[in-house]
Each structure stands twice: as structure tokens, then as C-alpha cells.
Amino acid sequence: MAEHLASIFGTEKDRVNCPFYFKIGACRHGDRCSRLHTKPTISPTLVLSNMYQRPDMMTPGVDPQGQPLDPKKIQSHFEDFYEDMFQELSKYGDIQCLNICDNLADHMVGNVYIQFREEDQAMNALQNLMGRSYEGRPIIADFSPVTDFREATCRQYEENVCNRGGYCNFMHLKKISRELRQQLFRRVGGMAGVEAEATALLAVIMTSAVVVPGEEWKKQESEGKKKQESVRESSAERRAKIELWNKEREEADSAIDNSSKIDDVNRGHQRNDSPSNVKKPNPSEEENGNYDF
């Protein structure tokens, strides 16, 4: 029973724990959810709830005064906020990833997720964020159960085909420019930046066809063995053995011929020296082998 409960924990089959909270760290039902939202006591991931305030929160692409906003300005505003968060949070540990939701639903709008390399680094960051504020708004930080953002992210959003828009229940993670990512992770993140790039490269490798090094080595080893076998087949030693076999065969054939000639001569002598009245063997005796030459 315990194994069964462990196998379905955090899935749709789990009637006790909320799968959305387990995967995403947030649920649209909030405290009214019929399933449990079990907050972790320790985790490498922190969530800063409703931290990012979009300039077009009321209506996408439009400011609070109803004026249209340039998408470049919206992106610039977001990247300024991202850089502020990264530089501050990197003081407490090595950041593996920093994700900010682009969703519009109340339980996910502006949520900031920070995953550190170690759990004690996340604990250090949480302790230092307690009681602080950003632009006059208090920071609401807590441990998050999210550890695998691939399970929490909306794949349709990444392909620009999500029909739920900003009210999707999976994470719509807003992207920063490649230049800013390289700048932050290389300058501030140190080894964390290297690992983040390695993680991104690994994700690309996992979704593409690659040659497995072990299989390539096996192929080379097999080809090497074939080459060695071909060398042995054409070596001087092999040719010498063939010559020896031919010579032995010729000598054996020659010995058989000489033996046949000697037998013929002996038979001729016996016929000449034997008296004429020697009884010839009868055919039946020849068949039975009861005679001597």
C-alpha cells in the first residue's frame, strides 16, 4: 500500500495531494482546493509570489492609462527587473535557474522561481529576504516543491500555440535575450553560469539524434579487429604455412607414386621366378582375401 501511494504521489491519481501544487507550486483554487498543498520544509527552489509587476498588467500591450505600449519597452522593463533579481539573489548562492511567470491568473502572475545548487543556499536566501521589500512592496518568499521546470512549463506556450493565453495553469516563462543571459551567468554566476549553459546544451542533445560515444568506440574496435584479421591472413607466416602444406602434399603424392612403382616391379619378379605349375588362386579365394602375392 505504501509503495502504491508513493508511486501516485503528486499525480492525477493522488486524491489527497494536489498535483498542480506539486508540479507548479501554485494552484488556482488556493486554500479552497479539495486536496492538500503540502509545503516543503526545505528545497533548493524558492518562490517569490506576485513579485514581478508587468507594465501592462491590466490589459496586455496597454498601459494603465489605456495607451499602447511598445513591445521593446515591455521587454526592456522585464530584463531590468530580471537583472535586479539575479544580482541580488546570486549573493546567497549559486543560481541554477531564475524563471519568471508571464501568466495573468492571480495565483501565478509575476511569480519568480529561483533554483539554487544547494538547499542550504536557498535557506540562506530565504532568511535574508524575510521582512524586505522591493519598490515599496513586501517580498513574500517561501520554499517551492518545484524542482523540474520541464514538467511545470507549458510546452504549447514555448511553441506559441497555447490557446489558453495568460490564464493557462502551466508556467508561461518569460524569456530574456541571449546576450543578457550570457552576461549575467558569466559575470555574476561563475560556475553556476557554466552549469546553466551545460544544462541547456544537455536539453538540446536530449531532443536531437546524436552518436553515442560508446557505440562509436565499439565500431572502431570492430573495424580494428577486422583489419588485424586481414593482416594475419596475408602475412609471411601464413604464406609459409601454405607453402609447407603444398610441399608436404607433393611429397606425400610422390611417396605414393614410388610405392606403386616398387609394387609393380616386385610383382613382375615374382611372376618370372615362380614355376609354371604354381596353382593360381581361385576367384572365390581372391574375393575372400585368402591368398598371398
Rank of each mutant, 00 (worst) to 15 (best):
Glu3Leu: 10
Ser7Tyr: 05
Ile8Met: 06
Thr11Leu: 06
Asp14Ser: 07
Cys18Met: 04
Phe20Gly: 07
Lys23Ala: 05
Cys27Val: 00
Cys27Asp: 00
Arg28Ala: 03
Gly30Cys: 07
His37Lys: 08
Pro40Tyr: 04
Pro40Asn: 03
Thr41Cys: 12
Ile42Met: 14
Ser43Gln: 08
Leu46Val: 05
Val47Gln: 00
Leu48Ala: 01
Ser49His: 07
Thr59Gln: 10
Gly66Asp: 06
Ile74Thr: 09
Ser76Gln: 15
His77Met: 02
Phe78Ile: 05
Phe81Leu: 03
Tyr82Ala: 00
Tyr82Thr: 00
Ser90Phe: 03
Asp94Val: 07
Cys97Tyr: 01
Leu98Asn: 01
Tyr113Gly: 00
Phe116Gly: 07
Arg117Gln: 14
Asp120Glu: 15
Ala122Pro: 03
Met123His: 13
Met123Gly: 14
Ala125Gln: 06
Leu129Ser: 06
Met130Pro: 03
Arg132Phe: 06
Tyr134Asp: 01
Asp142Ala: 14
Phe143His: 04
Ala152Leu: 04
Asn160Lys: 11
Asn160Gln: 07
Tyr167Ser: 00
Tyr167Gly: 00
Cys168Ser: 01
Lys174Asp: 00
Gly189Glu: 04
Met191His: 10
Met191Trp: 07
Ala192Tyr: 02
Gly193Pro: 09
Val194Ser: 10
Glu197Thr: 10
Leu201Arg: 14
Ala203Ser: 15
Ile205Glu: 11
Ile205Pro: 04
Val211Asp: 12
Val211Thr: 13
Trp217Arg: 14
Lys225Thr: 01
Lys226Trp: 03
Lys227Gln: 09
Gln228Ala: 13
Gln228Leu: 13
Val231Asp: 07
Ser234Ala: 07
Ala236Trp: 10
Glu237Asp: 11
Glu237Met: 14
Arg239Pro: 01
Lys241Val: 02
Leu244Tyr: 08
Lys247Met: 09
Glu251Pro: 09
Ser259Lys: 13
Ser259Leu: 10
Lys261Met: 11
Val265Phe: 14
Gly268Cys: 12
Gln270Pro: 07
Arg271Val: 10
Lys280Gly: 12
Asn282Met: 13
Pro283Ser: 02
Asp292Arg: 15
